[in-house]
C-alpha cells in the first residue's frame, strides 16, 4: 500500500438497490493535500465523498464492493465506525449548527468522546475556533445561540466543530454553495490554512473554486472517474475532451 496516501480506494462499486452509482473507482488521496471532486449533478461525487466516512451505511439499500483503506486499514473491516468518523470529519453544504450555544456546539463532539474536564473543553473550544478563524468574532459571545451567527460564521462554526474532535481528514460537501462571495473566500483561505495539518476532500460545483484551492482534482462523470490528476493539469491541459467540455462550462 502506498505510504503517502491517506486514503486508498480500490475497485469501488456502489449500488443503491438496482441502480449503480459508482463504477470501479480507484483513487489515492494524498496526505495534507486538497482533493477536489467535480462533476455534473448526479455523477456520484457526493456519494463517493460520503463513502469515505461510511455515511452511506445509514442507507439500507446501499451495497458497496471494493476496498477503501484509511491509514492502511480497511474502513469496513478494520476501523470502528465511530472512531473512523472522528478521524474523518465532515462539513455539509448548508451550515447546520446545533440549536445550542456556540461553546456547546464545539464542545459537543469532545464531550461525546468522553472529555469532561471544563478547562480542557474550554481550550478545545478556543483552539478550534481559532483554527476556523472565527475566534475573534465570537470570543465575547461564546454562550449565545449559534443560530444567531451569519451563514458564513455558522459554516466556520461547523468547521470548528469538526476540528474539535481532532480529525485527520476533513470531507466537505459544497461547503460554500450557500454563502456569499466574502464568506466564500474566508472559507477558501481557511481551507488553504487547514491543509497544513489536515487532508481535505471537497466536493464543489464551483469550477473556479476547485481551480483555486485544490492540489488534485477528480472529475466524476456517470459514476466513474473520467479524469484525476494535478489541478493545474486538469484546468490547463486536461487529457479527456469530456473534462475539457465540463470545466469550460460547455455541458453539465
Amino acid at each position: 500500500m502506498a505510504v503517502e496516501n491517506k486514503i486508498n480506494v480500490n475497485d469501488l462499486n456502489l449500488h443503491y438497490g438496482d441502480f449503480q452509482a459508482l463504477y470501479d473507482i480507484n483513487i489515492g488521496i494524498k496526505e495534507k493535500e486538497v482533493t477536489a471532486l467535480i462533476g455534473p449533478s448526479g455523477c456520484g461525487k457526493s456519494t463517493f465523498l460520503r463513502t469515505l466516512n461510511r455515511m452511506n451505511d445509514l442507507i439500507d439499500i446501499v451495497k458497496i464492493d471494493g476496498d477503501i483503506h484509511y491509514d492502511d486499514k480497511n474502513i469496513y473491516s478494520q476501523w470502528d465506525v465511530i472512531e473512523l468518523r472522528k478521524k474523518v470529519g465532515m462539513v455539509f453544504q448548508k451550515p447546520n449548527p446545533f440549536p445550542m450555544s456556540i461553546y456547546d456546539n464545539i464542545a459537543y463532539g469532545p464531550r461525546t468522546h468522553g472529555v469532561k474536564n471544563k478547562s480542557i473543553l474550554t481550550d478545545i473550544v478556543e483552539r478550534s475556533l481559532e483554527q476556523a478563524s472565527l475566534w475573534d468574532e465570537v470570543k465575547d459571545r461564546l454562550h449565545k445561540p449559534a443560530l444567531g451567527l451569519s451563514g458564513g460564521q455558522q459554516q466556520r462554526l461547523c468547521i470548528a466543530r469538526v476540528l474539535a474532535v481532532e480529525p485527520d481528514v476533513v470531507l466537505m460537501d459544497e461547503p460554500t454553495s450557500a454563502l456569499d462571495p466574502i464568506s466564500t473566500s474566508r472559507i477558501e483561505d481557511l481551507i488553504d490554512e487547514l491543509k497544513k495539518s489536515y487532508t481535505i476532500v471537497i466536493v464543489t460545483h464551483n469550477m473556479q473554486q476547485a481551480g483555486r484551492i485544490s492540489d488534485k482534482t477528480a472529475f466524476f462523470l456517470h459514476g466513474k472517474i473520467e479524469e484525476f490528476g494535478p489541478t493545474d493539469e486538469i484546468f490547463f491541459n486536461p487529457a479527456s475532451p469530456k473534462t475539457e467540455e465540463y470545466i469550460s462550462g460547455k455541458f453539465g
Partner: peptide
C-alpha cells in the same frame, strides 16, 4: 468568462 484549458490557451 474565466476560460480554462483549451479556451484559455
Amino acid at each position: 468568462e474565466q476560460p480554462v484549458a483549451g479556451d484559455l490557451r
